[in-house]
């Protein structure tokens, strides 16, 4: 996944640069191309694993609802001892685990009965994972369902770096904060974030970003802000009374 991300972030930089030249907002990237993934599935997986309506277990277990599923948890399918142990140890199938498993199954679960040589091409794996993702819960219906795209890595994204220190941008970003934190500074249930010294604001946001502070909403929000964006917000909110 790391490699996948590295490759994809390079592609994304190229795409973002092109987007800037065209004056377009950059787009985040889907996990992979599901249409190409369908071809991979049809060639390499389909003979053992069923998908979609009426899917049942064959040589391998069916792959509906795979994302977020605990390993070895389909009733009535005879898993290897090692796969059962992996499930008991807490292995849950998400894009990252699937990427490792599909690269070489025995690398993740030593005694797996899945006799498959693996897919070395990271892009093919990403495409396959994107294809399989469509057969699990949609986040629209079940908000806690697995993600369907990799987040933009803002710290390396020149599209974001290009707008460093833009106070207007800080104000725009603040719209995301004021859904919960009141612009008036009222602090019922949710703390006030107005009128803070910039430095304090930055330190706190960086602590959420590095996950040193525990609140899940703030970790998520801070986690996708670049250092420059955090600085912009700090500058904006310092001036809000």
């Amino acid at each position: 996944m790391k490699m996948l991300r590295n490759l994809k972030s390079r592609l994304r930089i190229a795409a973002a640069t092109a987007a800037i030249l065209l004056g377009l907002a950059p787009a985040s990237a889907q996990i992979g191309d599901a249409d190409r993934g369908a071809e991979v599935y049809n060639k390499q997986c389909k003979s053992c694993h069923m998908l979609g309506e009426d899917a049942r277990n064959r040589v391998g277990p069916h792959l509906n609802g795979l994302f977020g599923r605990k390993a070895a948890s389909i009733e009535g399918y005879r898993y290897s001892k090692d796969m059962q142990r992996a499930g008991a140890d807490g292995l849950v199938w998400q894009a990252e685990q699937l990427d490792v498993y599909v690269t070489k199954p025995q690398a993740l679960v030593t005694g797996t009965r899945m006799s498959f040589r693996g897919i070395k091409d990271s892009e093919k794996r990403a495409d396959l994972i994107a294809f399989l993702r469509a057969y699990s819960d949609s986040p629209q219906d079940i908000p806690e369902a697995a993600p369907t795209a990799d987040p933009t890595e803002h710290d390396v994204d020149p599209a974001i770096l290009a707008i460093v220190g833009d106070p207007e941008y800080g104000e725009y970003l603040s719209g995301e904060c004021t859904t919960c934190h009141q612009a008036s500074g009222a602090d019922q249930g949710i703390p006030s974030i107005t009128g803070w010294p910039q430095e304090d604001f930055v330190v706190v946001m960086q602590a959420y970003k590095s996950k040193a502070r525990p609140h899940p909403v703030m970790r998520m929000i801070a986690g996708r802000l670049s250092d420059e964006e955090i600085a912009g917000l700090a500058a904006y909110f310092e001036g809000v009374e």
Partner: peptide, 10 residues
């Protein structure tokens, strides 16, 4: 993304 609004974290 090009195709849709995609979940990235949660």
């Amino acid at each position: 993304t090009e195709e849709k609004v995609a979940k990235t974290d949660g």
